[in-house]
Computed example of a mutant assay.
Amino acid sequence: MQELSGKKLAAEIKASLIKEVKKLKNETGAAPHLIVLQYGEDAASKAYAGRIEKNCEAIGIEFEYQQFIDQPEDFKARLKAANADDKITSIMVQQPLPAELKDSLEMINPQKDIEGITSASLGKLFVGLETLNPATAEACMEILDYYDIPIKGQRAVVVGRSNIVGKPVSILLQQKHATVTMCHSRTRDLKWELKNADIVVAAVGRAEMIKGEMLNENSVVIDVGTNFVEGKLLGDVDYNSAAEKVKSITPVPGGVGTVTNQVLMRNIVKSFKNLHGIR
């Protein structure tokens, strides 16, 4: 069994970005600038913003964070201002959002949409145009490429159909000429689908739902899951049983999430370059 660690790949992306940001600063006199907006007091969202801040600092990206509580109109006003501010080149809106602010994600300027979550960004991805792809979906593809795992003609099964992972990664796999099946809670025979898959992307959000007995010995498994159970981070795949069965698998932690962090940073740099007309 080959473990598809993301640590070395993430380190390489980070090192490249540090050099690129330094060069951009010398050439333009400016730096990529991210603003993270949070509504409410969700502790996990705030902790995630803190990790993003550390990653930005390490690369040389300017970081700004604002939290709003019981101020929906102020939140929308700040988002509109960030869209119009030339200094701010990237915008993140933390989720979850209350019902009255769900539509605010569509307010994000697509050129600054580093998470690739607006309908404009997802629409471009769907038709194959250049855009900022959702970082986790892109990280899955980066790992497959880094380890020279063939995609063309392979049968890929994606478990989970979210707009930020399942759907976009299925499109990216199709663009690389895989035959893709999307599975979810209403799939009639998930075990059969997994047994017949060359590539499995597990993005369902249920700790260790997929067991080794459900997989075949030639499968490559990309585990996107980030489930905290009794203080321990677990994937959507039962790593121990799967590792005894499959050809290759990403660990949790140290796999997709590690690469996602740096792909997000790369999207921040891309948005800066796009807004400045730099190719």
Score class of each variant (00 low, 15 high):
residue 25 K to H: 14
residue 166 G to S: 11
residue 37 L to Y: 05
residue 9 L to N: 06
residue 2 Q to P: 08
residue 91 I to T: 07
residue 148 D to L: 11
residue 268 I to H: 09
residue 149 I to Q: 11
residue 224 V to Y: 01
residue 239 Y to L: 15
residue 70 D to V: 03
residue 63 F to M: 06
residue 10 A to L: 10
residue 83 N to I: 08
residue 103 D to A: 14
residue 172 L to N: 01
residue 177 H to M: 13
residue 234 L to W: 04
residue 256 V to W: 02
residue 60 G to I: 05
residue 46 K to I: 11
residue 9 L to I: 10
residue 265 M to G: 07
residue 125 L to V: 03
residue 171 I to N: 01
residue 216 N to G: 12
residue 125 L to W: 00
residue 206 R to M: 13
residue 78 R to W: 00
residue 29 G to S: 09
residue 137 A to R: 01
residue 126 F to D: 00
residue 262 Q to T: 13
residue 201 V to R: 01
residue 126 F to V: 07
residue 172 L to I: 08
residue 73 E to H: 12
residue 146 Y to W: 12
residue 96 P to C: 09
residue 95 Q to K: 15
residue 115 E to G: 08
residue 188 R to Q: 13
residue 171 I to C: 07
residue 256 V to Q: 04
residue 237 V to I: 13
residue 267 N to F: 02
residue 207 A to Q: 01
residue 60 G to E: 07
residue 146 Y to K: 11
residue 115 E to D: 15
residue 11 A to T: 12
residue 220 V to T: 15
residue 192 W to M: 14
residue 224 V to W: 00
residue 142 E to L: 10
residue 43 A to R: 14
residue 245 K to R: 14
residue 11 A to H: 09
residue 165 V to L: 01
residue 263 V to Y: 01
residue 234 L to Y: 12
residue 133 N to K: 15
residue 59 I to N: 05
residue 9 L to K: 08
residue 153 G to W: 03
residue 21 V to H: 07
